[in-house]
Design a protein around this nucleic acid. Structure first.
Lengths: 346, 346
DNA sequence: TAATAATGTAGAAACGCTTCGATATTATTA
DNA sequence: TAATAATATCGAAGCGTTTCTACATTATTA
C-alpha cells in the first residue's frame, strides 16, 4: 500500500537497518550514505509508520497530559496555554499529547486516565491540581512524570513552578514605593499551592516592609471561596471594605478575582486606581482590556508548558535520578489599575 | 516483560487467534471458550498492546481534533466543552484524541497538523472555523472528517451544527410576547457561519412578526468587529444607542458580547432589564453569574462533541456514502437580563 | 439421510519497524 | 608493523497483534 522502509532501502541500495539508522540519527553511517538515503526519503516523502516504530522500539511516542476538568474549562485559558506550550515542544520530539481530564473525585484504579492502565504513554504531565489519590497512583506506576503548577507534599516529582512569592513581592514593592501601605488580599482557599504561595508572598513582603501588623490582621484577608472566580473577587472586596474602610489597595490572587473587585467598585460607584488600587496575577489575555487595565504579574504560560515537556523528555531519555524543580520567573506588569501613568506600559 | 496475548492463550489453553476474537468480539467463539478466556484476561488484567494492534490491523485508533488557537484560548470554554464531549465518546470506542491547534494562517502542506501527513489518525474532527485552505487540503486527503460548528461552502462534509436560527427566533418570540419590538443586534463579522446564521435568524423572526423595517434598518445592527468579545459588545451597544436611543432590547451574538453590553450599561448608569433587555447565546458557564444573569440560548456543547465523534466513527467503520448534517436543537434560558421574574429559572 | 451451511478453533503468515550480532573496513595505538 | 579500536553496513530475529486459511464439528436444509 504505502511506501515502507524496505522500498527506501531498495531505492537507496542499502539495507533497511541503514535506513533506520539514518532516520533515528543513531549509530554509524557515513556521510555519503546518509545523504543518499535522506535524498530518497525526501523524494518519496517517506514517513515511518508510528505503530511499527512503537512496536519495535517499545516506546509509545505519547505523552499523557492530565488536567482537572474544572481547570480546563474555568481557568480562562491559563492552562490551555500551558497545554499549547507542551504541544509545541512535543512536536520537536515527534511526540503526541494525549489529553485527559479528570474530575474532582476519581476512583482508583478504574477511574484513572486510560493511558495509564494501558501503557499508552512514555511520560505524564500533570497541570494544575488534581486529586491527590491520582498523584499517589501515578507515583506507584513509576512512569516519568512532571507536575506543572502543582505539587503534593511528600511526593517527589519533577516540577515546573512559577515564582509566586516573588511575583507578589514585586507588586507590594510597587505599591509601597508609591506610598501605599494598607494592602488587603483576596484569594481562594489553599486547595491549590499557588494560592497559598501568593498569600505567603504577600505576608513576607509586608513583614519585610515593617507592615507585619497587616500581614497578621485577618480583617485584611479574604480566603474563603474554594474556587477563585469573578464573584469571589466581588464578594471579597465588599467584605474587606466593610471591615477596613480605609483600605488603599487589594492584591488579588489572580486576574479573574481582580475583575470581580473592579466590578464591585463600579457597583458602589468607586473605581480603581482613584479610590483603591487593584492588582491581579497571571496576566491572562483579558487583563489588558478590563476597565481600567489590570496591573498584574505576567506568568509565561506557554513557556511553562515547553519547559515541562523538556524536563519530561529529559527524564524519559536519560532517566536522571535526582528530581528537579524549575522555578519560572515572573514579572510585574504595571497598568492603570494601580496608578495612572503617562507612559504606555505594555 | 509484560503479559501478552500468547500468555493468555497458554493459560486459557486456546490459540492466540481465539483470544483475539474474544477481545474484538468478532467471528465465532463458543460461550464456554469466551468465558474461560475472559476470566483469564480479567485475572491478569491483560490489555492488548496498542502499537501491535495498530500495526496488525492498520488502524491507528486515533482521532485528530483540529481547532484554531484563537478558539481554544479565547472562546470561554465553548470549544473546550466540545473537546470534552469528543473525548468522552472516544473512550467508549477505545480511541485517543490527538489535539492540534492551528493559527489563522497556515501554509499547505507543511504547516498542517502532523497527524495528517503522518497518517496517525483514522479520522478528523474540526471544531469551529479554521483556514479554508486547510479544509480543502483535508478534503483532498480523503480522511473521514466531521465538522462541528463550522461549514465551508462547496465542501461536502459530515457536520454537527446547532440550530442558530431557531435559537434567535426563540429569543425574539420571548421578547415580542412581552411587548418588546425595537430590537437591535450586536455581533461580529460573518467569518464564522454561526454568526451569520444568528443574524439571519434575527432578521427572519422580525419579518415573521411584521417588523421587517427593523430587520432591514442598519442602524439596529452592529456587525463590524472580526472577533466577538466583551469590548465588541460594549462598543456595539454604545453605537446602537447613539443611532437608536429608543432601543428596547439588544440581541447579542453570544454571551461574551452580551457581557460587554451589560458592562456598557453599567458605565452609563443604566441597567438591564430596566432600561434595555439584553440577551446572549451559548449559555457558557459564566452566563448565570453576570449581573443581572443573562437570558440566553443553551447550546448542548458536550453533546455536540459526543455526536460529532459518533458520526465520525460511523463513517470510519461503515463508510456511509451520503454526507450527514445533524442539527442540534437549542433551548431558550430565561434569566433576569430580559425580565425580572418571581420564579427561579435555573 | 446426505449434502450443505453455520459455527468453532488453531496455525502461521503478515504488519513495518528497531536492534542485536556478525563481518568488513579504516583509523589509532603500542 | 601488529594489535586494537572506531567506523560502516548488513542480515535476520523479534516486537505483539490481527487475520487468512484450513480443518473440525455441529446445525440446517432438501
Amino acid at each position: 500500500m504505502s511506501i515502507t522502509i524496505k522500498d527506501i532501502a531498495k531505492f537507496a541500495e542499502v539495507s533497511t537497518s541503514t535506513v533506520s539508522l539514518v532516520i533515528s540519527g543513531k549509530g554509524y553511517v557515513s556521510n555519503d550514505t546518509r545523504e543518499k538515503v535522506q535524498k530518497i526519503i525526501d523524494e518519496y516523502n517517506y514517513k515511518p509508520l508510528r505503530s511499527a516504530q512503537q512496536l519495535a522500539s517499545s516506546q509509545t511516542g505519547n505523552i499523557g497530559f492530565i488536567i482537572s476538568d474544572i481547570h480546563l474549562s474555568r481557568s480562562e485559558a491559563f492552562y490551555s496555554r500551558i497545554l499549547l506550550g507542551a504541544e509545541l515542544e512535543a512536536r520537536n520530539h515527534d511526540m503526541y499529547i494525549l489529553l485527559s481530564t479528570v474530575g474532582a473525585k476519581i476512583d482508583i484504579p478504574h477511574g484513572v486516565p486510560r493511558f495509564l492502565n494501558n501503557h499508552d504513554v512514555d511520560g505524564i504531565i500533570i497541570a494544575g491540581s488534581v486529586p491527590v489519590d491520582l498523584v499517589y497512583c501515578i507515583r506507584d506506576l513509576k512512569i516519568p512524570t512532571v507536575l506543572i503548577d502543582y505539587r503534593v507534599d511528600g511526593v517527589d516529582f519533577d516540577s515546573i513552578l512559577m515564582d509566586n512569592r516573588n511575583g507578589v513581592q514585586q507588586i507590594i514593592n510597587h505599591l509601597i514605593s508609591n506610598g501605599i501601605t494598607k494592602i488587603g488580599f483576596v484569594g481562594g482557599s489553599f486547595y491549590h499551592p499557588s494560592i497559598k504561595e501568593r498569600f505567603e508572598g504577600y505576608q513576607i513582603a509586608l513583614v519585610n516592609n515593617n507592615l507585619g501588623h497587616i500581614a497578621q490582621n485577618e480583617d485584611y484577608h479574604y480566603l474563603i471561596d474554594y474556587e477563585t472566580s469573578v464573584e469571589c473577587g466581588d464578594r471579597g472586596l465588599a467584605i474587606l471594605l466593610k471591615k477596613v474602610p480605609e483600605l488603599e489597595a487589594v492584591i488579588c490572587v489572580n486576574d479573574t478575582t481582580a475583575t470581580g473587585c473592579l466590578q464591585y467598585l463600579k457597583r458602589i460607584d468607586k473605581s480603581a486606581p482613584k479610590d483603591i488600587k487593584v492588582t491581579g496575577f497571571d496576566n491572562v489575555n483579558f487583563s489588558a482590556f478590563t476597565n481600567p487595565p489590570l496591573t498584574t504579574v505576567n506568568v509565561p504560560k506557554v513557556q511553562m508548558g515547553v519547559e515541562g515537556l523538556k524536563l519530561l523528555i529529559d527524564r524519559i531519555q536519560n532517566g536522571i535520578s535526582v528530581h528537579q524543580t524549575r522555578l519560572i520567573p515572573v514579572e510585574l506588569v504595571v497598568r492603570e489599575s494601580t496608578f495612572l501613568t503617562d507612559t504606555n506600559n505594555d
